[in-house]
Design a protein around this nucleic acid. Structure first.
Lengths: 237, 237
DNA sequence: ACTATACTTTGATCCAGATCAAAGTATAGT
DNA sequence: ACTATACTTTGATCTGGATCAAAGTATAGT
């Protein structure tokens, strides 16, 4: 079995890029890469999946940017996350075999599709993989609880600071600039995610700009005082 | 291997009672029950675990009632859930090998402790168990996202209605009355969970009482018009 | 390059829920 | 049963963020 051959199955889609985390042997990586079906491109604005679609695969974002949002019967909508390269989409669908949110590309993107049945079988063969996957699922729970803390007990200004700090950290983990952010989502998306209105997002960004914490030019944001944002976050008035 | 002997390891703690769900064979149930260490009693007000404690076990609530809450550095606190018989505590700790929340008993309770290392090994032997556990973790993600929707886009009245409807549903699934609720938590706990202040919780309960939706006598609540609560929930003004 | 459409900013006003305050009611320990 | 402590209710007032409105700025399609 030739490594380069495997790579051709899904170019650029090694398991190493998935947040399905480190700690796998090379053999395990190879086996896993085999099970990634084709690389799927998703055009900006298009859904990768929609609420109610049958669940078949997990998706690791390869390039690009997504948002996920859930839909309440009465038409209300809530953005539940933004996913960038290396992050996994579809974990919530395991529970019901149907997707319970929409995943929309916010720019031209590509994902690696992982057949979940095959993946589970592989987990039976490799305890380490299964262990890692348990951690991945648990990490998603922790992430969600962090957002519950944010939505349940922070003021609008703190929410936005937390959002920016989090984005910067994730960009920086991907060796992109932690101070130069290009937002892929609208003010409305941000507001929905943070439980505030788009006007409030805009006003607070302007305020941060006036306070020299940020430089805001539309969706281009430069963080001038990261410690300033951190301080705001941990102040609790 | 004798069933009654196994039962004595942790009386009343069959895997069937864990929300680690249905679909296991009797053999699997037996093997699993073996791995439940002793039944652990927890006194009202006492922690089952605290933030930072090393993660060793999952806990299935056997009897009683718990709350989990996370603690922000600056002292803010957020109740992230209430757990009753059959629900599992500790899933969030898998990700970091340390508990990231406090689990406090709200009445004298008992849990079944499940050694997680042993449980993972068992999962390797029984693909079905592992499959079910993946679903359990995923279900927790779905639950959390439901709370995000609640916190991000509902008004206080709707949050409280959603809370009561959810509690009633869970009681009813446990063959307890769906209309006669005895709340185990304070108004402050409820408020923290719902992202509103305790005074607001109290006022809205009184309002529901005035509107004949509920009968409220302290922590004893009788739901008079379940459809009224549902309507409120799906109205979106 | 042009035009339509979608997004963003900013201002003026309003209101749901927070805060402050105080009285009333459980609950637990002696 | 008594008393202390913790919890709950209700009232009065305030305020952060929502809502309504309108002008300004990107972006995409022709």
């Amino acid at each position: 079995m030739d490594f380069s051959e495997l790579k051709s199955v899904c170019y650029g889609c090694s398991i190493r890029e998935l947040c399905l985390p480190e700690g796998l042997t090379d053999e395990e990586v190879l086996l896993l890469d085999q099970h990634m079906l084709h690389r799927v491109p998703v055009r900006k604005g298009e859904p990768l999946y929609r609420t109610g679609d049958p669940f078949k695969s997990l998706y690791a974002v390869s390039t690009g940017f997504f948002k996920t949002s859930i839909l309440h019967e009465d038409g209300r909508t809530q953005v539940t996350g933004f996913q960038m390269a290396g992050e996994v989409l579809g974990l919530d669908a395991i529970s019901t075999d149907h997707h319970i949110c929409d995943a929309i590309a916010l720019e031209d993107s590509a994902v690696c599709e992982i057949d979940f049945n095959q993946f589970e079988q592989l987990g039976q063969l490799m305890s380490n993989l299964q262990h890692r996957f348990n951690k991945t699922l648990s990490r998603e729970i922790v992430r969600d609880q962090g957002i519950m803390l944010l939505l349940g007990s922070m003021r609008a200004e703190e929410r936005l600071a937390a959002f920016l700090v989090n984005l910067a950290k994730r960009f920086s983990a991907r060796r992109q600039s932690a101070s130069q952010l290009v937002l892929r989502m609208t003010r409305e998306d941000i507001g929905s995610y943070l439980g505030i209105k788009l006007e409030t997002v805009s006003r607070i960004l302007s305020r941060f700009h006036d306070q020299q914490l940020l430089e805001v030019r539309g969706r281009h944001i430069r963080i001038l005082q990261p410690q300033g944002l951190d301080r705001l976050l941990n102040s609790n008035i």
